[in-house]
């Protein structure tokens, strides 16, 4: 983040797109509204300068080798403010990104991975069907991280969850309780969390989720999940003496 942000990009009009309209059911105004939301993010100015199509980002990108995915095209579409193409990418492409930030090698200091982080957030915030699809099967993880403050607990190591990790997973899940007790660090003596997180700590975590508006995002992708998490949070906050409407 070295040089000053560039002058404001021109306001896009329908004629700025060079792309065919691949999602004709969604209005241009709606696509433009989503793009404006992306640009309003505080991080946006330092994630996008200009692109001279050097291809360094694609060369370094692991997803580009496996998927029909190009961080260069993400930066180009954003630089052109091609609202049609950006909306297409927000639905079809952004979930391919590995978020490794190899693309931060960009000599213009763009961050295509960073742009994608914002694009995904906007997609989730606005309940795009493609984001719900991408996060299918992921809700148990969201539940775990939001309610316990750790993302993957030992009791998630089940053979049916990670069949491709080999027979070792079966050994682990069969012996889980004993093997966790056979760990010298005291904080690791748990199977439902990665380590013991204190109750007060969880209270503080829930307050952070609440005050930063994250619960609204969860409600957009999965209402059922949202309800379960709110229940857990409300109980803990009540116990801690907080009278907050979640």
């Amino acid at each position: 983040m070295s040089s000053a942000a560039p002058a404001a990009l021109f306001t896009a009009d329908r004629g700025a797109t060079l792309s065919p309209h691949s999602y004709p059911d969604v209005s241009y105004e709606e696509k433009l509204r989503l793009w404006d939301e992306v640009k309003a993010d505080i991080r946006f100015p330092t994630y996008l300068y200009g692109c001279y199509e050097c291809g360094i980002c694609v060369a370094a990108c692991p997803s580009a080798r496996f998927y029909d995915f190009s961080p260069r095209k993400i930066a180009q579409a954003a630089g052109r403010e091609d609202v049609e193409l950006i909306f297409e990418q927000m639905n079809d492409d952004v979930w391919n990104c590995s978020q490794c930030f190899s693309c931060n090698r960009c000599p213009r200091e763009n961050s295509p991975g960073g742009l994608i982080t914002i694009l995904r957030e906007v997609a989730v915030n606005n309940g795009l069907a493609s984001s719900k699809e991408a996060l299918e099967g992921y809700s148990r993880i969201v539940y775990k991280i939001m309610t316990t403050g750790t993302q993957v607990s030992p009791d998630m190591l089940q053979a049916d969850a990670f069949p491709d990790w080999g027979p070792g997973v079966v050994d682990v899940s069969d012996n889980l309780d004993l093997w966790r007790r056979a760990l010298p660090p005291e904080t690791l003596h748990t199977t439902s969390m990665s380590w013991h997180v204190g109750k007060e700590t969880l209270t503080e975590l829930y307050l952070i989720w609440h005050y930063s508006g994250v619960m609204d995002m969860i409600a957009e992708i999965d209402e059922g999940l949202h309800m379960i998490i709110i229940d857990v949070m409300e109980e803990t906050l009540e116990d801690a003496g907080y009278d907050i409407e979640l």
Binding site: Q99, L135, G213
Partner: peptide, 13 residues
Amino acid sequence: WNYYASATSNAPA
């Protein structure tokens, strides 16, 4: 991990 995976968070959080 959750943030990079699912974007179900934001900069202030």
